[in-house]
Design a protein around this nucleic acid. Structure first.
Lengths: 125, 125
DNA sequence: CAACAACCTGGACTGCACTCCAGGTCAACC
DNA sequence: GGTTGACCTGGAGTGCAGTCCAGGTTGTTG
């Protein structure tokens, strides 16, 4: 339903993903059916922008390009792939929860180490 | 105070860090003064093992080798570097907190996407 | 003492996820 | 109509963090 058309530069600005990376994602099959102007230049839709934000979210939490490609390929293949797609997401969900746990442990360790340093505050110059 | 001496294989087993990576960390200055047997073979102490676990914890939460080297170098330089070491840790602490926050957002996004899939459970075969 | 495993060194290689480049096209403005 | 800037393509290059390898030494075991 979105009519907005974003140029590559606008898309990069909006999503925080570089133009090169946007092209890379497209090449790798993570982003398909990107519209083109008569000139051949890409025109991204709002939906493309939302999807790229999802991609970034999953990438930033450790999903690999390979896994994302698999997920996208399944989506293109039809409804019958839903179970596997759901499984990919639930697996990744578990990974993210493990990462959170791991990071809580890291916070405790950092705090422990910090407690060994002298307690007087110091203004940084 | 630790008298235990661990061979490279035992150290790898204990810390979950490969022998090659242990040597790599040593080369990069993240692990110094590793003892040697008369044969020239490394003998790691319990303290080395604890420190490697700290290294892994920081690495796994995104601290780079470069930053870890900096931290180690400072430690070797004396007490007057404490403020900077404390700063490195507090900076990294903030990063880890941001990562936790980011991951909570990711969980919400994953759950949102999962909610679009049919709600009936499916036994995996 | 032969052979085998574990270790040593310096240096080359790998995989991942980008990132950059050359050479060319398109649109707009002067 | 020439130049400027955004964009195009295919392919090469980068940086990080390991990981692997060749060629050699040590030390244990039959």
């Amino acid at each position: 339903m979105s009519t907005t058309e974003l140029t590559p530069a606008e898309m990069a600005e909006r999503t925080g993903v570089s133009i090169d990376t946007l092209r890379y994602y497209e090449r790798e099959g993570l982003l398909s059916n990107v519209a083109r102007a008569d000139s051949g230049h890409r025109r991204y839709s709002d939906d493309d922008a939302l999807w790229v934000e999802v991609l970034r979210c999953l990438r930033d939490t450790g999903m690999t390009i390979e896994q994302l490609r698999r997920y996208c390929d399944l989506g293109a293949q039809g409804d019958y792939t839903e179970p596997e797609r759901r499984r990919i997401l639930t697996d990744h969900r578990a990974l993210v929860e493990a990462q959170i746990e791991e990071r809580h442990i890291a916070l405790a360790l950092i705090d422990h180490k910090l407690s060994f340093y002298s307690n007087d505050e110091e203004e940084s110059g």
